[in-house]
């Protein structure tokens, strides 16, 4: 079974409703390592050697974070800056991450309707996530579409439960070899038929 590393970044996790619900549902699953970056590195002093070791041990890397200002929280960017070293993650000899699967799991306050050329955010989530996509590609990883919980400001408890359950199911699917063919017609992993609303 494939091993999943969830790199979770949330500077105010204790106040989050949606993320704590998602996290509590999946963090104790088997073959899942839940790695709470803000709890581990409150002073932004990332232990690079330890992070590389963790990456080596896992097959699927999930960047799980709220979508702040169309990007990730700063510690996650710090993580990318520090851990993805030249000639280890990229560069002529950088092959450590080759063929691993990588994806973003994000939560956004705005609904899907506002993330498009007609909406007030002008661009789609997929467009905003381009830097992450390219980071993964440069490191030789296979980048999967995001799993996004959108419109969190107006999310009902029932809808949240549905997302939570689907997040767990998605991890099961990923561990059991979900392939690009399974989502070729979808820009979000939560739209694939296996995860349709219950």
């Amino acid at each position: 079974m494939k091993k999943v590393l969830i790199l979770f970044s949330h500077p105010k996790f204790e106040k989050s409703r949606v993320n704590s619900s998602l996290v509590h549902h999946i963090k104790d699953k088997s073959n899942v390592t839940f790695h709470d970056l803000y709890e581990q590195y409150p002073d932004f002093h990332i232990d690079v050697a330890k992070e590389k070791e963790l990456l080596n041990q896992h097959d699927i890397i999930i960047w799980h974070h709220p979508f702040y200002w169309y990007s990730c929280p700063p510690l996650m960017k710090q993580w990318i800056d520090m851990v993805l070293e030249f000639n280890w993650a990229y560069g002529p000899e950088g092959k450590a991450l080759h063929d691993k699967i990588c994806l973003n799991v994000i939560t956004t306050g705005g609904s899907k309707a506002v993330y498009c050329s007609e909406g007030y955010n002008s661009f789609t989530v997929k467009q905003f996530l381009r830097p992450f996509e390219q980071t993964a590609i440069l490191c030789g990883m296979v980048y999967f579409p995001p799993f996004a919980v959108m419109g969190t400001h107006n999310l009902s408890d029932k809808a949240l439960d549905n997302y939570k359950i689907n997040y767990g199911k998605l991890i099961d699917l990923l561990q059991n070899n979900l392939a690009p063919n399974d989502f070729k017609n979808h820009s979000f992993l939560n739209e694939i038929p296996q995860l349709k609303t219950i």
Binding site: V48, D81, M82, E85, F86, N87, G91, P92
Partner: peptide, 16 residues
């Protein structure tokens, strides 16, 4: 501490 330091990248790339 090589982070955010492009010098070693330049050196390495020049070698190849």
């Amino acid at each position: 501490d090589n982070h955010w330091d492009s010098e070693h990248i330049r050196k390495a790339l020049n070698k190849t």
